[in-house]
């Protein structure tokens, strides 16, 4: 997948634990793990909005496009 989710980076910048954020935005830890490990096939706008609001960032801070190869 050439879309990379930099959620770990943002969590580290904001000094927030992933469990804390999951609880705050109502995301299960299993789903957050899917996001962090890059297994996610799609992300709902509502989820993206909740993460952005909590981490006070833009979607572009979380998502990055890298060309394959």
């Amino acid at each position: 997948m050439s879309i990379i989710i930099n959620i770990d980076v943002m969590l580290a910048r904001r000094k927030v634990r992933s469990k804390e954020m999951a609880e705050a935005i109502g995301l299960t830890e299993a789903n957050l793990s899917i996001l962090k490990t890059g297994k996610a096939k799609a992300i709902r706008l509502a989820t993206l909005e909740a993460i952005c609001r909590y981490l006070d960032c833009q979607p572009g801070d979380l998502l990055e496009y890298k060309k394959d190869g």
Binding site: L27, L32, I34, A40, K41, A42, R44, T47
Partner: peptide, 8 residues
């Protein structure tokens, strides 16, 4: 279903 399972 697999796509749904991996939609967060």
């Amino acid at each position: 279903k697999s796509e749904q399972d991996y939609t967060v």
